[in-house]
Design a protein around this nucleic acid. Sequence first.
DNA 1: GTCGATTTGTTCGTATGTATC
DNA 2: TGATACATACGAACAAATCGA
Lengths: 209, 209
Amino acid sequence: MNKNYHVRAIPRMFEQVTRQIVDFITFGKLSPNSKLPTERQLSESLQVSRSSIREGLRILELLGYLSSRQGEGTFVSSPPSFLIPGHVLNHKIEAVELDRYFEIALMCVEKIVFLSLEKMKTGCITFPMPNDGETDPFWNKFMVLITSLGEQLSNPYYVSLFSHTFELLNENGYFLAKEKPFDFSVFRDALLAGNRGKTADFLMLLSAA
Amino acid sequence: MNKNYHVRAIPRMFEQVTRQIVDFITFGKLSPNSKLPTERQLSESLQVSRSSIREGLRILELLGYLSSRQGEGTFVSSPPSFLIPGHVLNHKIEAVELDRYFEIALMCVEKIVFLSLEKMKTGCITFPMPNDGETDPFWNKFMVLITSLGEQLSNPYYVSLFSHTFELLNENGYFLAKEKPFDFSVFRDALLAGNRGKTADFLMLLSAA
DNA sequence: GTCGATTTGTTCGTATGTATC
DNA sequence: TGATACATACGAACAAATCGA
């Protein structure tokens, strides 16, 4: 009876609405500042109530996709939004786009790793247990390590941003085809030893991966 | 008649709702996984319709504040969300929290600046015009410069993240009391000359500011 | 400047699906 | 099985803002 609250079998109405509208914009190639159909038109063409349409519009507005103005209408925003959650999209994100998210994740990794190395000098960093899941894929182990380090920093936003980005990449199967750039245990040992130069070298390999 | 669409004089109902609920959680010190009042109770106690309550709940759900489960209720999420837009909050963000956002902004600044320096070698970076607003505050000029550089990079997310964070800091008056760490024009010249070492020195001063 | 049409903002009532006991 | 509590969803109505004739 493993009840997983994170998985919702049936997407709610407003979630389907957001994806439909995103599709409408992307595939219709609507340029910024162009006008969307009215709420009533959307309600009719998608066959959902106006309330559900509005819930979807609120989501996309918060994400920076749209902006609504009373008496005028709803318009495509510019510039586009950052970090669109995967569940808002119907379609897969393009590879070039995923590469950009990967760069953001790496930026956070650098910060987390080097701040951790600094903190190690005062000897108050713990590493994740070498669990039995040694058969885990490389990128899984990497994620666990970085997350564990990041959670010990005083600024929680580095790891928060990393997690969000990494999760989005994972959801889109980004790491399935991605080759592992080095042996994970060697990287972990370099970190544990506080070897800054070697760690930096590994991170260079990462961005080339 | 400078009509600024970005400023909405009267907050919409659902925006007030989000702030009320955030207040309810923060000041009521509701711990993660604790249950919120039902939508009908919120509707009655805040004297707003259920539709508006729901629009507000959708926002907070997307931000990672809450999660709703049909037949059960709405619960406070854990962990808390990253980068809460200023307009979702009623109260000022605490200083220590703002410092954390500032660190995130600086992380982006570093990336934008060093990637720009790389790109300068191929000679295809333009700097913002030295406009007449030379009396602009230091941080304004800094923001304009970094944004301008970031927009010329192939990855738009660095500047997107920087803008979001910087705007949030600005909205909260973060830079009003903050001393300028160096002379802006000197920094700009160092960048223009492609002097990597000097630029790095300036960035060090920034994180100490 | 006013009027009317259009569109988002907001409310209310009702019905349905789902979880808990 | 039934009862209760709750989120989900719908549709109609009215208010307020915008725009053009």
